[in-house]
């Protein structure tokens, strides 16, 4: 869990989550409000620069993490850029189907805008996710009055994700030790057994966890203390100024 590791160990760790949340939120708003790719590109540069330059996330790690959403994005915008039902320029046919593929200036522009907007939004959220542990993000969401039930689910899912991964790893190692991965057939069977066991064990684990919570006086609400961080006005002003100016720019530059 790469993101988690950096969230706990980066140079922006001690910066108040409200500051990081403000910056990321304004970046997100600016990207979504933009009418041209210019502002989202600026947002990407600012957020990427902050994550890599200021918070100290290694550039290689950052780019690798960007690959995941980039894959989804490229697949998504391909549909916008190219069309099979007509356009300015015929660029080829789908082999074997006799399906023509067209590109159009308008389509390419739309695709570029969507790509840039999404990139800016992803970079904004990555800045928050890579510099702020989940617990503090939850604290931030609580200030924003997100329903408690949702936050509890986030925390439990987060914790159980690691417990489940650990369990899956253990089972898989135990299967390998008994030649469970020796042939393709074995691998498939092992995978099926792993899945089935994970479900049963997760249910068992959930029950155990519930007992553990009851033992410490759980009634109907999960509660915990949040870490206290100082909130220097300087940081907040800087975040509002930089994010705000981008948002302003996005609202002013209308194509």
């Amino acid at each position: 869990m790469l993101i988690d590791r950096y969230a706990y160990g980066n140079r922006w760790r001690e910066i108040h989550p409200v500051v990081k949340g403000t910056l990321a939120g304004l970046g997100l708003a600016a990207s979504l409000a933009a009418a041209t790719p210019l502002v989202p590109l600026l947002v990407m540069a600012l957020m990427g620069g902050a994550a890599v330059g200021a918070a100290g996330i290694p550039l290689r790690v950052y780019l690798r993490l960007l690959l995941v959403p980039a894959g989804f994005l490229l697949a998504g915008v391909a549909g916008l850029a190219f069309s099979c039902s007509g356009g300015d320029l015929l660029i080829g046919t789908v082999p074997g189907l006799q399906l023509p593929v067209f590109a159009s200036g308008a389509g390419l522009n739309r695709a570029a805008l969507v790509l840039a907007r999404s990139g800016g939004a992803v970079a904004s959220l990555y800045l928050l996710a890579l510099t702020t542990p989940l617990t503090e993000i939850v604290g931030l969401l609580r200030r924003l009055k997100v329903p408690h039930l949702l936050l509890e689910l986030m925390v439990l899912a987060y914790r159980q994700l690691f417990a489940c991964l650990e369990l899956a790893r253990d089972i898989s190692v135990a299967q390998q030790a008994r030649l469970g991965h020796a042939t393709a057939g074995n691998r498939l069977r092992s995978l099926a057994a792993l899945g089935a066991n994970l479900i049963v064990r997760s249910q068992w684990r959930a029950r155990q966890l519930h007992r553990g919570l009851l033992a410490r006086g759980f009634e109907d609400e999960l509660c915990w203390l949040e870490p206290e961080r100082s909130l220097p006005a300087r940081h907040l002003i800087l975040a509002v100024l930089s994010g705000g100016s981008l948002l302003l720019l996005a609202l002013l530059v209308r194509g």
Partner: peptide
């Protein structure tokens, strides 16, 4: 079966 929270201090505060 006891630790549910994301950080140690939070869990202890429960």
């Amino acid at each position: 079966s006891q630790l549910f929270s994301a950080s140690v201090r939070e869990d202890v505060s429960f």
